[in-house]
Design a protein around this nucleic acid. Structure first.
Length: 677
DNA sequence: TTGCGATCCATTTTT
DNA sequence: TGGATCGCAA
């Protein structure tokens, strides 16, 4: 009885559309949800509803795009029950899910003891395989990074090598462009050769890169009926969040489950911003055609923002040549109009953003966490960070390269990688080169020796036998006995390597070393070094800001738009919204698809705001000053949609047109210099 | 061969 | 801004 009434309470908080979707009985469901329409609530309600109708939590697969949101959804489902009814429900990303499958059934996927390569590792591989001067036949130099990108795009978009080259190397030129076609034709072979070598390289060393993790599973499940049957009978329901960001590779994966399982996918075509990774929001439009027995449920009421904020967002989408057919209507009603500021440069922008945040907190009683700053790039957040530090505003940054990608962490982690897979050549390379007197050549020699060993202890023995500085082998030997306690392995490695790291990082070592406290805390949650290594590769962000005792986590959120998915805040500040950023010149070069993705980016940013939305734009960098962006999304906002605010002393007529970017005003700016020390 | 210093370069977004 | 890369000296 108690259980029932609890459920009824929970479901009764949904509106009619959400309720219909959450309790839908059709075989497959696509929920088309506008921004702020309670997408997450609905997916949570769905899980709750399923569990309540007797589905075992173990038989529900909850997939999301980022770990953070996956975890959050699972947590909130658990909170919606009073008892431990939902025990066992976990939220995963596509990657962590597939890796889990591979680990559980190494025979089925014929993969065991593999090390996962992150982006940087993959790039190193390609660097090795491309050689020093990899060039196209036309003599154009191609970086290893570019080759890696082409390869990855082909995987994720499940397209041909030629197509991937056209998109990534030739600015998405039209498919019938004769010149480009020729160039691709000429070079496809050499690309294919390198990629083939890359496959062999990975195979020999037991490596899987990000894309392999999905590909191995997708290949096996689509090609092997027996395996498909075996794996898919583990689940009854698959719930997918952020469906619009699903790329063809991931879609192929889901497809294998269509026959046995119920799919429940939630997404918004207007929020698709992962095209660069092969995501194509059109898969959402084709969902009902591709998935027989599926039905679409729309969610159209917006609970987050005031109508003024939605009016501006709606206007932005309506300007698009694509027909999104979206018009968000606010349940909350009216509020204040969005403001657009125009500043001379980003430092002033940062000044104003932080000023307004301080004002909101001190005069309007807002929490720090009620304020969010959104930027197109991590780079754009840096100046805000500086301003926050200066004014002692507590903040946290989402997005961009995290702790795990920083040099010093990778340095220490390389020792852990070695003891979890002693054949990990890349880890050996990094680890050995760390020490004094060892460069590429010596390191390669040593690796040639130790990697041929039959086991970890053999290879460490071989290393000890060589006449090297004793810490080199000692570090590895001492942590090799700590396979089951990753935190102490880190601590030990840190201790033996400390002197050398200090020598390398000099005065920076003081603050760099502090990161390891966080790392150890994270590692303590893993059962073994191997598990920790795998986890950290898949979750390079680790937004775990170490909770300092006494300090709560009421902080201003600084985030890239891509990381802001699913976030919201009372006051939102979109910085860097200049003509060069929305869309970027790069996108303009890449044509309409890219430009429209930029538009969706801005749309996602705008629709994060609950009460106030402030957009900042400024004259930006020197290189782009003469760049005349006819596509600029914000060049003619209808006056009635915003409160236009222009800084004092700036001669403007309400709307800022391109003329302001040239001439005297701009010359004055060049003379201005700032010092942040 | 290594390691340091100087110069040039380019600069989205994420698992 | 830092980063990667190149050249040169030890």
């Amino acid at each position: 009885m108690a259980k029932m009434s609890r459920t009824d309470d929970f479901l009764s908080t949904l509106n009619a559309q959400q309720l219909a979707a959450a309790t839908a009985t059709e075989r497959h469901v696509l929920v088309l949800a506008g921004a702020g329409s309670g997408k997450t609530r609905t997916i949570i309600a769905r899980a709750h509803h399923l569990i309540d109708s007797g589905v075992s939590p173990h038989r529900i697969l909850l997939l999301s795009f980022t770990r953070k949101s996956a975890r959050e959804i699972a947590e909130r489902v658990k909170l919606s029950f009073s008892s431990r009814q939902s025990e066992g429900l976990v939220g995963q990303t596509f990657h962590s899910w597939c890796l889990g499958l591979i680990k559980s059934y190494p025979k089925i996927f014929s993969c065991s003891n593999h090390t996962v390569l992150d982006e940087e590792d993959r790039e190193s591989c390609f660097k090795l395989l491309c050689g020093k001067n990899f060039k196209t036949k036309e003599g154009r130099g191609v970086s290893a990074k570019a080759v890696a990108e082409v390869y990855s795009y082909a995987m994720n978009a499940q397209c041909s090598l030629s197509d991937a080259m056209r998109v990534k190397l030739y600015d998405n030129a039209p498919a019938d462009d004769k010149e480009v076609k020729m160039a691709i034709e000429n070079n496809r072979e050499s690309f294919a050769t390198i990629i083939k070598k890359y496959f062999e390289y990975k195979n020999e060393r037991h490596y899987l890169d990000y894309d392999d993790i999905l590909d191995v599973v997708a290949k096996c499940l689509s090609g092997n009926a027996e395996a498909r049957e075996f794996i898919s009978k583990r689940y009854d329901h698959i719930l997918v969040d952020e469906m619009q960001d699903t790329n063809p590779l991931q879609y192929r994966l889901l497809n294998a489950f269509q026959k046995r399982c119920h799919l429940f996918c939630v997404g918004d075509d207007a929020q698709s911003i992962y095209g660069f990774r092969g995501a194509d929001f059109k898969t959402i439009h084709e969902f009902t055609d591709k998935v027989p027995g599926s039905v679409v449920y729309p969610l159209t009421m917006n609970y987050r923002s005031t109508q003024e904020i939605l009016d501006l967002s709606n206007w932005l989408l309506a300007c698009s040549p694509l027909n999104y057919d979206k018009k968000l209507i606010s349940v909350r009603g009216h509020g204040s109009k969005p403001e657009v500021f125009h500043w001379e440069d980003e430092w002033q922008e940062a000044e104003e953003v932080t000023y307004r945040i301080l004002k909101a907190v001190h005069e309007e009683g807002a929490l720090w966490a009620d304020n969010m700053v959104l930027s197109r790039s991590v780079w754009g957040l840096r100046k805000i960070e500086v301003a926050c530090l200066e004014k002692e505003i507590p903040y946290v940054v989402y997005g961009g390269t995290g702790l795990m990608q920083s040099r010093h962490v990778r340095d220490v982690a390389s020792s852990l990688r070695i003891i979890s897979n002693y054949r990990d050549e890349l880890a050996w390379m990094r680890y050995l080169k760390l020490w004094k007197g060892i460069g590429d050549v010596t390191a390669s020699k040593i690796i040639g020796n130790v990697i041929m060993a039959g086991s970890l202890s053999d290879s460490l023995q071989k290393l000890s036998d060589m006449n090297l500085q004793k810490e080199i082998a000692a570090t590895l030997v001492s942590i090799s006995s700590m396979q089951l306690s990753p935190a102490s392995a880190i601590e030990t490695a840190l201790q033996t390597m400390d002197a050398r790291l200090q020598e390398l990082y000099k005065e920076e070592w003081d603050w760099r070393r502090r990161d390891f406290e966080v790392l150890k805390e994270v590692a303590a949650g893993s059962a073994s070094v191997g598990e920790f290594v795998a986890e950290y590769v898949l979750d390079p962000k680790l937004e775990i800001t170490l909770k300092e005792p006494g300090k709560d986590d009421d902080k201003v959120v600084l985030t890239t738009i891509h990381s802001a998915k699913g976030l919201e805040a009372t006051n939102c500040h979109i910085v860097n919204a200049s003509a060069f950023s929305y869309p970027t010149s790069r996108a303009v070069l890449n044509g309409e698809e890219a430009i429209e993705e930029e538009r969706r980016c801005l749309y996602v940013a705008m629709t994060r705001a609950k009460d106030t939305l402030t957009i900042y734009r400024s004259v930006e960098s020197i290189h782009e000053s003469h760049y005349d962006n006819e596509y600029y999304f914000l060049s003619d906002i209808p006056a009635q949609l915003v409160k236009s605010v222009v800084p004092a002393g700036y001669d403007s007529h309400g709307d800022i047109d391109d003329a302001d970017f040239d001439g005297d005003v701009y010359d004055d700016l060049l003379g201005t210099s700032f010092n942040f020390n």
